[in-house]
Design a protein around this nucleic acid. Sequence first.
DNA 1: GCCGTTTTCGGCCCGACTGTTTTCAGTCG
Length: 580
Amino acid sequence: MRNAELADAFAELGDLYELDGAIVHRVLAYRNAAKAIREAPVSVAELARRGRAQELPGVGKTIAEKIVALLDTGSIPSAEKLKRKFPATLVELTRIPGLGPKRARKLYDDLGIGTLEELRHAAESGTLSDVPGFGPKAAENVLAALAAGADGRPRRRILLSKALTVAEDLAEALREHPAADRVEVAGSARRGTETVKDLDLVATAHDARALSDAFAGLSAVSDVGSSGEAGARALTHNGLSVDLKIVPPRNFGNLLQHFSGSKRHNEALRADAVRRGLHVSEYGVTDDSTGTTHSCTTEAEVYELLGMAYIEPELREDRGELRAAAEGRLPELLRLEDLRGDLHCHTTASDGRNSIEQMARGAQRRGYSYVAITDHSASHGFGNHVSPDDLRRQIERVREVDAGLEGITVLAGTEVNVLPDGSPDYDDDLLAELDWVIASVHTSFRMSEREMTDRMVRAIEHPLIDAIGHPTGRLIERREPYAVNLERVVAAAAEARTFLEINGNPDRRDLSEIHARMAAEAGATIVIDSDAHGVETQANVRYGVITARRAWLTAAHVANTREWPELLELRGRGADGSRP
DNA sequence: GCCGTTTTCGGCCCGACTGTTTTCAGTCG
C-alpha cells in the first residue's frame, strides 16, 4: 500500500473523529500523522512491517498499530465503527462554507441529512430552518454554494507557476497605486509549495481604504467579498480566491510572518514562544512578564525576539527549521544566481520550438557559462525521433554553434530513453561522442516496483549516463510517481556518482522537495534543469531552485553551481568516459 | 493521540468574523 493511500485513510479517520465530536487535539493528531505519512520519503508500509512506523513524527503507538491493522485487513476498525454511526459522506457537507463538523453532525442527528443531495432538499423545502442554529441565511448559503458547483470534493488546487503569475501581477498593480506603501505576496505561493489553494497579499498603505478599494477595482478581480480598512477578499476571473491584508507599517513584519505560514510552522513557533512566556500574533509579540507588545517592521525581528535566526519562507513547514534556527544551524540555501549552466533542454530536432543557437543565446542571456542541448532519443514515443544518424548531425551542428558563440560553452547531449531492461536506446559508441547524457524513463511506467528499481539502478550504473532525468515520473496533481524504491535509487546514484535531476518544469518538480532532501542527505548529487522546450521556458529553472530550497539544499549539493570543468570532476566518469 | 533541555501527565496557537443570538459557539484562515 502506498503512502498516499495510507495517508488518505488516516486523514479520513481524523475527519470521522471530528464529526464524532472528539477533542480537536485528537483530530489534529490523526491529521499530523496523515501528513507525516504522506511526506515520508520511504515506504511507510514497509516501515510499519518492520515495526518502525513510530520513527515518523506524530506517529505513536496507537497509530502505528492502526497502520498495521490497515495493511493486514484493508481497513481500520475504529473507522469502520464510526462509519456505522453516521455515513462517511457527511464529510462532504463540511466542504460547504459555513458548515463545519459540528453543524454537519447536527444536521444528520436532527434531520438524517447525510449527503449533499439531501442537504439541497432540506434547504429548498425549508426544513433546514427547523434545526436550532440554522436560520434563513443558512439555507441561502447552502443553495448558493451548491449553485456555485460545490460537489463535496476539496477545492481544486492550482499549480504554483500559475498562482505566482497571478499573485505577482496583482502585487505589482497594487504597488503602482499612490496609496500603497509596501505590498508583498505571502502565503503558500511565497513559500513555493507545489500547488496553491488561494493567494495572500499583505500591504501597508498611507490610505488603507483607498488601497482596498483599488484592489476591488483591479481588472483581474471579478467578485469582491468584503472590503475595508483591514483589507479585502476577492475572487479572480480564473476562480482564485485572494486575501489582501493591510496593517500599519510598524506591524508589517508581524503580518508578513503570520500570513506566510505555514499554519504548522506558525503553530509550532507559537507553542515554542509560549514556553518562553511570549505570545505571537499578526499584531506583535507580547511578553507575559512585562505585558508589553513588540511591533516588528521586518520578519527578521520577529524571529530575533524568539531567539532564532531568520528562516527563509521555503523552510517554514515545521520540518525541523525552528530547532535549526534556534541552534544557528540553518543551511545557506541555494539561490537562482548560483546556477552556472542548464543541462537539459530541447530544440526543434525533437519536440522543442527553437534552434540550437536560439537556446544557446537564451542560456547566455540568463548568465550561464554553459548549456547542454539534450533532445529526446529515438524511442520516447512523442515528438520527432532523433535517429542515431540525426544525432551525429546534431552533434556537428552543436559544435558549429559552440565555435560561433563567445562566452558560453554549448555542449552536445541527449535525453536518452531508458528501455525497460535499463539500457539506453542509443549505442554506447554514440553516447561516448556526447559531452553530457541525461537518461529518463518515458515508457513502460507500469512495471512492478522491483522491476522499475532494477531498471533505474542499471541506468544509474551505466558508465556513460551522467544524470537521471525527472526520476519519479510524477506530474503534479495529474500522475502519481511510478512505483520505485527511491532509497535504492538514491544509494545507487551516490555510489556511482550519477546525478539526480530536479526537473524545473512546474508540472514536474521531480525530484520533489521530500525526495531531493533525502537524496542529498544520502550523499547523492543533484542537478537542476529547466527541461525547456523553448527559450521562454528556460526560466522554469526557477521552480527547480524553489524545490531545492524547500529541500534544504545548498549550492554545494548541486552539480551545476560549478563551472563545467569542475562539474566534470564530480560526475562518475573521466573525460575518456571511464569510471574513476 | 502525541510528546517532553521546565513534564511519562497535562498540556497541546491566535484572532476575526458570522449568524443567530440575548452572550457566543462554530467556522475560518
